[in-house]
Write a protein that binds this DNA or RNA. Structure first.
Lengths: 109, 109
DNA sequence: CAATATCGCTATCAAAATAGTAGCAACCAG
DNA sequence: CTGGTTGCTACTATTTTGATAGCGATATTG
């Protein structure tokens, strides 16, 4: 597993620009949804898997390793949970909820 | 190409929750980066391709169709450009730049 | 007119990522 | 021991992405 971190060459990039590294992580299937699900609180491997519509455990595990390496997620007592940084990231993604509601409304017309 | 829109069953979801549809789009490789690149202004197919490190034109085209269907991007006089909604989305993603800088700093330690 | 260059884009095939299913070892409850 | 969880690995199938070549259309230059 290639650990994807800022200031290191990134999938399809090589620039090492931090936000590109972030896009590289968020641009992988399930990562956003996993983080989003963990906002509510810690979840076990299997619960998180269920939250994500039954993703393959192999993919789940790869993602969890990646998110742990990126220090966005950690495995605590009650299961997998967001780190402080992970929570901060999700907080900043929160405006997207409002946006997506408007988006949905417009696309429905 | 399965057009992915809010309130329609979404890849791996089925809930039709708007933000999940958004995650589905942003969770595909290159989409975030393409939108991010277009913030600066319109780009031709080939320029955009270059901005994304030479993505396959086939993938580029599929993404552009998807983003157009989602009304985030349109093909205007000067090339591909963000719609108003696309610009709004990118504006809301802007806090991520600051976050990713901090993230980068912490991970470097 | 012909040569050249760019445009958006398709077609083809290889490589990589993801999905689907089965199952293991460790733990705890009864 | 039985049965239930847990996190996770192994394996194969399918989908997605990557890499390259090249087409038809338009513009530009000589």
């Amino acid at each position: 597993m290639s650990s994807i971190l800022p200031n290191k060459p990134v999938r399809g990039s090589g620039s090492g620009v931090p936000i590109m590294a972030l896009f590289d992580i968020l641009g992988r299937k399930w990562n956003m949804r996993m983080l989003w699900s963990l906002r509510q609180g810690a979840l076990s491997f299997r619960s998180l898997q269920a939250e994500c519509g039954g993703v393959s455990p192999s993919v789940m595990n790869a993602r969890l390793k990646q998110l742990q390496a990126a220090q966005l997620v950690l495995l605590g007592e009650g299961g997998y949970e967001l780190t402080a940084m992970g929570r901060d990231l999700m907080d900043r993604l929160d405006p997207l909820r409002e946006w997506s509601a408007q988006w949905s409304a417009i696309l429905e017309e």
